[in-house]
Design a protein around this nucleic acid. Structure first.
Lengths: 210, 210
DNA sequence: GACCTATCTGACTGACCGTCAGATTTTTGT
DNA sequence: ACAAAAATCTGACGGTCAGTCAGATAGGTC
């Protein structure tokens, strides 16, 4: 029962409809990547799957609903990252662990950046549902990061005036933003590897205090 | 001559037109703040100043052009921040200097966040003009930050594998993002002051290595 | 007051949104 | 295998907004 899929009016839908809905979601993700949220049109989405706007509204009340669902799917891919964030990064292996996390985050980002960007915009513009989605997505990661900071503070490697949760947010911010900047920074001579290294060092420093 | 103001077709305009154009820009900024870029309509902007859509298109070829101009105006307010970023932050006064910068940045952010958010979205979605605007805006600050990092690297306080420019980008990212997160984090118990302190400490650490 | 120029806008075309009634396809019952 | 019922899909429509243009209005000059 849990894996029932619903139409916009709430009724349970069958296999054909599930497939159509899925194609709509995929087309939405594709166009979001290619054209950005500002030029995303329902007509384009349905044209892309060889259908008509009316079909879209069978399954979603508006485009937001489709994007929100994509954002929730992205969140599922984010959860495994938490396993790379256990307290205990030490001088010997910590930097390498930071690298592992950065690498995993880069892969995650690359496959969902358009959807995540849309989610963050909606959240920042005050949309309740997208706020909740972002909060939920970041919660596990933020808590894991905050726990690492707390450990550093307790071990007196980090100043106790540091707020763990804010630091966690800063770390997430660095990751997201540097990856978004990437293409532009490449032009200024900072290649992907420099970004990867620098990010790992900054993470390692901010989280452990080493 | 330099302070001539132009219509959309390039002709120089007079005082009445300049005033109208200004009211359009102000209304654009206001609605951008109130409703966000996704719900920004030319009709609303012109309704707001008691005019008609045709008037808007006298002065701007599209909404982007108006937002871009607002973004450039914001950049002017950002330039003075560079003076707070001179190399030489030391153990005695450095943290306080970091606080000063964070405070100034908060004021700047508060008065322009809607426009900056729109600018960044457009830039990230690949719009050439907004990319250029963002790059130009960040350039002075980034260079100043990068110079501080370079100083830290030279003094062996920071690892030389750290790319100064990337670090500068990370610092800007932290500032922008934490301020954007602010309302949401308040709910989780991190108040404005905690954010201010944490940001200052992180900046101080990342920039100087102390 | 007559004329000239700058500024503004009503009215229009075309595109997209979101809806709904009815057409089409699939499933069910016998 | 066939008809009836249910599920799915879509053409066509009313409403709103983008962007254009010709003509109306306001301001300045002599």
């Amino acid at each position: 029962m849990t894996d029932d899929v619903f139409a916009a009016d709430g009724r349970v839908i069958g296999t054909r409809a599930i497939a159509t809905r899925r194609r709509l979601l995929d087309a939405t993700a594709k166009l979001l990547t290619e054209q950005g949220i500002l030029d995303l049109r329902v007509v384009d989405i349905t044209r892309d799957i060889g259908s008509s706007p009316a079909t879209f509204y069978q399954y979603f009340n508006d485009v937001d609903e489709a994007i929100l669902e994509l954002a929730k799917e992205a969140t599922e891919d984010e959860k495994p990252l938490v396993r790379l964030l256990q307290p205990g990064w030490n001088k010997k292996t910590g930097l390498e662990q930071a690298h592992d996390f950065v690498d995993a985050y880069m892969v995650f980002w690359d496959s969902h950046h358009a959807v995540l960007r849309a989610r963050n915009l909606k959240a920042e513009e005050g949309n309740r549902h997208f706020r909740a989605a972002r909060t939920e997505a970041n919660l596990l990661i933020m808590n894991a990061l905050a726990a690492m900071v707390t450990e550093g503070v307790n071990a007196k490697r980090l100043p106790d005036s540091l707020d763990p949760f804010t630091t966690a947010a800063a770390v997430v911010a660095m990751c997201e933003r540097l990856l978004a900047f990437q293409p532009e920074m490449a032009k200024r001579g900072s290649d992907k590897n420099a970004i990867r290294n620098t990010l790992a060092i900054l993470l390692y420093g901010a989280l452990t205090g080493h």
